[in-house]
C-alpha cells in the first residue's frame, strides 16, 4: 500500500493523496504489498492536485485488471467497466461532456490485448483523453498469464517454456496510431513520473503515459527477478532518458527502456472538430 501510510509525517508532500481517497470505501486495497500501482496513483494525484482541477469535473474510467481498480479508491466520478472497454466508455463520456477531464487507467492486457482495437482507434481520433497505461508485463489479477508486453522468452503461467511471441511497445503503437502525446515513465523515478503525468493530463488531445512497473508477485517470481525493491532498482538501472538514448547505439540500448516525452504534436482534437460541425449545421 503506497498511499495509506501508517507513518505520521504530516508535512510530507504525499499527504495530499489522502484528501483524494473516496469516503466510505472500505480499505485495504486489492494491490499486493510493494505493488507499483500505488506509486503511480500517488504521482497521478499529486500532479492532478497541483493542476487544481475541480474533482466534479474529473471522470476516471478503467477496465479490468489490477490497475483498473484504482478509480474505486479515488473520490472522482468513477466508471469501472468491462475488460478492454475502458476507452470506448471514456469516449462516450468525453464526447458527450467535453467539459469533463477524462482519465483512463489501464494495464497492458486490458489496453493492448482485449482492448487493442479500441486503443488504436482512440489514438486515431485524437480525442482529449489521458490514458495511464500501467505496464507490468503480465496479467496479475488472474494469476500471472502472458500479456502483449510479456517479452519474448519470458515466463508466465501460460508461457511455461518461455514466451514464443513478440511483444508490443505501447508507445510506438500509440504514436503510429495517431496519439499526439506519448510518454514513458517508471515507478523507479517518481518525480519524473509526476511531471509526465502532469504533462499528459494537460495535453489537449489523446495522451498516453506508459508506466513501467513491477509485478513481483507473478512476473518477478516466475522470472526470478527478486522482490519489489530489487525489481524497482533494476528499472532505475535500465531506464534511459530520451536525450541520452539518442546518443546511444542499439547495442548499448539492448535491455534498456527509454523514458521521457517520446512524442508530442498539435493536431485538431475530435470533440473540437465535432463542435464546429454542430455550430455549422444547427439552425441559426
Amino acid at each position: 500500500m503506497a498511499t495509506v501510510t501508517e507513518k505520521k509525517a504530516p508535512k510530507q508532500k504525499s499527504d495530499v493523496t489522502l484528501h483524494y481517497l473516496r469516503p466510505g470505501k472500505k480499505f485495504p486495497n486489492v494491490w499486493c504489498p510493494g505493488c507499483g500501482i500505488g506509486i503511480v496513483m500517488g504521482a497521478y494525484i499529486r500532479a492532478l492536485d497541483k493542476l487544481g482541477w475541480d474533482r466534479n469535473k474529473v471522470a476516471m474510467v478503467s477496465g479490468i485488471g489490477c490497475s483498473s481498480r484504482m478509480p474505486v479508491y479515488l473520490d472522482f466520478h468513477a466508471l469501472h467497466t468491462t475488460h478492454g472497454r475502458a476507452l470506448p466508455f471514456a469516449t462516450g463520456v468525453k464526447f458527450n461532456r467535453p467539459d469533463m477531464n477524462v482519465v483512463v487507467i489501464t494495464g497492458d492486457g486490458d489496453a493492448l490485448a482485449i482492448g487493442g482495437n479500441h486503443f488504436i482507434h482512440a489514438c486515431r481520433r485524437n480525442i482529449n483523453i489521458t490514458v495511464i497505461l500501467i505496464n507490468n508485463n503480465i496479467y496479475g489479477m488472474t494469476g500471472g498469464q502472458g500479456s502483449p508486453t510479456t517479452p519474448s522468452h519470458s515466463y508466465s503461467t501460460t508461457t511455461p517454456y518461455g514466451n514464443a511471441e513478440k511483444h508490443f511497445d505501447p508507445c510506438t503503437l500509440a504514436k503510429a496510431a495517431g496519439a499526439t502525446f506519448v510518454a514513458r515513465g517508471t515507478v523507479a523515478n517518481v518525480p519524473q513520473l509526476e511531471k509526465l503525468a502532469s504533462q499528459a493530463l494537460q495535453h489537449h488531445g489523446f495522451s498516453l503515459l506508459e508506466v513501467v512497473t513491477n509485478c513481483h508477485t507473478y512476473y518477478g517470481r516466475l522470472n526470478r527477478m527478486g522482490d519489489a525493491v530489487t525489481m524497482i532498482q533494476k528499472f532505475k538501472e535500465d531506464a534511459v532518458m530520451l536525450g541520452k538514448a539518442k546518443k546511444m547505439t542499439p547495442e548499448e540500448l539492448e535491455g534498456k527502456f527509454i523514458v521521457g516525452v517520446l512524442h508530442e504534436e498539435e493536431k485538431t482534437e475530435f470533440c473540437d472538430v465535432y463542435d464546429q460541425v454542430v455550430e455549422h449545421v444547427s439552425p441559426k
Partner: peptide
C-alpha cells in the same frame, strides 16, 4: 470501431 465500442460509448454518454 465495432459494436463492443458502440454500446460502451452510449453507456458512457448516459452516465454523464
Amino acid at each position: 470501431e465495432d459494436e463492443l465500442g458502440s454500446i460502451a460509448a452510449i453507456i458512457g454518454a448516459s452516465v454523464s
